[in-house]
Nucleic acid binder design. Structure first.
Lengths: 168, 168
DNA sequence: AACTGTATTCAGTTTTCACTGAACGATTTT
DNA sequence: AAAATCGTTCAGTGAAAACTGAATACAGTT
């Protein structure tokens, strides 16, 4: 990537990087995220910011923020290069690790906030009940909320299940 | 919902519906999607479009498109009401079924298109190789692409794994 | 201390996307 | 056949998100 290379090879690499961008965009993450990870994934050596800027033809600001986002997800890590004060990054190539620490972790967090929402509704419901309010459909509503809560707990348990980690 | 009811109960329902909107928004899906499903989920009887419009205070266009989106995910289904030519919808209350047929199915589809991307890169890579192009980093690139492809296959297998369905 | 090379932040711009209003088409009722 | 009732489609709007250029901050060098 950093050296000049035959057009065929670089074409294949560009194709991979572009595919990465498409994929992340497909999942609602940005375009650059996938491109950047793809670039680092194929690179045989760590790259500094300006190299990434040059390869992807995007602004330095985008690279700076996106690479740190990838770092938070443990998808890339910063590496030291002796005698160079620039920041170099390389990709974490273990996808399984990445899936566990990155994707599943954020999924759990979102599930958590969803649980908070359910809890809120529960208090509202208890308030209605304690208040002596009567409603012909009360049983149905209570039952369905209960079911929703159970499902939430089930999914949380599933994501915490060591079996999942074992499958990866 | 359709009948008048005490303020406490409707407050709890509105809270649930709002929570649904928050949750779907959290996952990158629209706000209305979650609200609409929440409304139908709590409703003891099927609702027609105008009832949903009235409850959620959104446009009929939004309800029309969103409810069909939910239908594609088998999250709701259209039901016939005798002597009424309007379309009525009710929620699928089995979350497990919903997860399998809805979420996992779309996930598989996205994985599929990602696989197409990888295949494209592979042909580009073979072209480079057949062309006799030389590159010092070729082994690394080939190896990493292979690894990526393996991972893709692994995930596809995991989503097709009957064990997953069993866990739900 | 001034300067150079680096990364980060921030205000502004472009793009994307959920959502709407109004027009349309289809079907039923008068 | 005219009117009424529904559902869908489509161009447009507003807001949020992605992305950029320029300013800033920071560390090392002269």
């Amino acid at each position: 990537m950093t050296r000049k290379q035959t057009s065929e090879w670089s074409a294949a690499c560009r194709s991979f990087i572009e595919a990465g961008g498409h994929t992340t965009q497909l999942f609602g993450l940005g375009r650059i995220l996938g491109q950047l990870y793809g670039l680092l994934y194929l690179s045989p050596r760590p790259l500094c910011l300006d190299e990434m800027v040059h390869e992807l033809k995007v602004s330095k600001a985008s690279v700076s923020t996106t690479v740190r986002q990838l770092e938070r997800w443990t998808a890339v890590k910063k590496v030291w290069v002796r005698g160079d004060r620039r920041d170099f990054y390389e990709a974490e190539t273990d996808f399984n690790l990445l899936l566990k620490q990155g994707v599943l972790a954020t999924l759990r967090k979102k599930l958590e906030t969803a649980g908070v929402q359910i809890a809120k509704v529960e208090t509202a419901l208890q308030a209605a009940h304690a208040n002596g309010s009567r409603n012909p459909d009360s049983e149905i509503i209570v039952a369905r909320l209960k079911k929703a809560k159970q499902f939430h707990g089930q999914i949380q348990g599933l994501l915490g299940n060591p079996l999942i980690e074992h499958l990866l």
